[in-house]
Design a protein around this nucleic acid. Sequence first.
DNA 1: CTGCAACTTGAAGTTCACTTCAACTCAAGG
DNA 2: CCTTGAGTTGAAGTGAACTTCAAGTTGCAG
Lengths: 146, 146
Amino acid sequence: MELLTIGDLAARSGVAPSALRFYEREGLIRSTRTTGNQRRYERHELRRVAFIRIAQQVGVSLGEIRGALAGLPENRTPTKADWARLSARWRRKLEDRITLMERLRDQLTGCIGCGCLSLQRCTLINPGDRLAERGEGPQMLINPPA
Amino acid sequence: MELLTIGDLAARSGVAPSALRFYEREGLIRSTRTTGNQRRYERHELRRVAFIRIAQQVGVSLGEIRGALAGLPENRTPTKADWARLSARWRRKLEDRITLMERLRDQLTGCIGCGCLSLQRCTLINPGDRLAERGEGPQMLINPPA
DNA sequence: CTGCAACTTGAAGTTCACTTCAACTCAAGG
DNA sequence: CCTTGAGTTGAAGTGAACTTCAAGTTGCAG
């Protein structure tokens, strides 16, 4: 059991075979073929798939994920260091996203008190309505001051 | 300027008019009409829109959001208490999601060390491979022990 | 060697969350 | 009044991320 079939990979990653084929078409994962044209995956592709799913949870599109995975070596099995580099970058993304969510949570908490929820001109969070110049949308969340 | 036009609401919420019409078709927001059939929004609809956007950030579908908003009174302007109740519920959802992300982050951090990222059978996180019975996918993240 | 589950392909279909379009009407400042 | 920017509709289009289908092929256990 050197290589994994698409069914194996699907079972181990929790991703449907159809999705794996789709990922391959999209250049996110790779496979070799048997003489009979069936896909065979090296075990480290499992890592790629895991990475893809993590990134998706963070809210990253497949396109961006492809970009990140392009940072892995083409012609050799990625080393621990390769993955560590990628993971570190993603950890930062994740942390940014967590920060956003925490801000969202605090915002929500703050607005339970005043019942506002308007985000753009809540007087608690935006005293004096100084946000208008900064453009559209919930600026406090998207582009918070400091 | 008692009521808001769709353009006003769009500018203040940062959501495109087409999206607002879409939300209305989907029963997420409501409007009255002028004699000439144009939409007019009460100012508290801005709160609904803000709520919708927050919920979307948390990863909730419009269908679920509709369900939540159904908890608001039909025939009177929602009070602070109404919003507070909804917000409190959402705050919990948000917190759950933050917890998931934090777990994801810690996982990623842990796996930078071992270079694994396999999630399902990483020996650091799943010593002895006891996760197989629990079903498919990255069980440690979806359905963590305790 | 046979049978059958698992695999192959390209094309079309699905869901979500909107956006775009065309043709038309309304609201309001000068 | 007239102009013009903003608004109206239903229908169709978009893009992301897959899934489903049909018709055929392969791999391996017995």
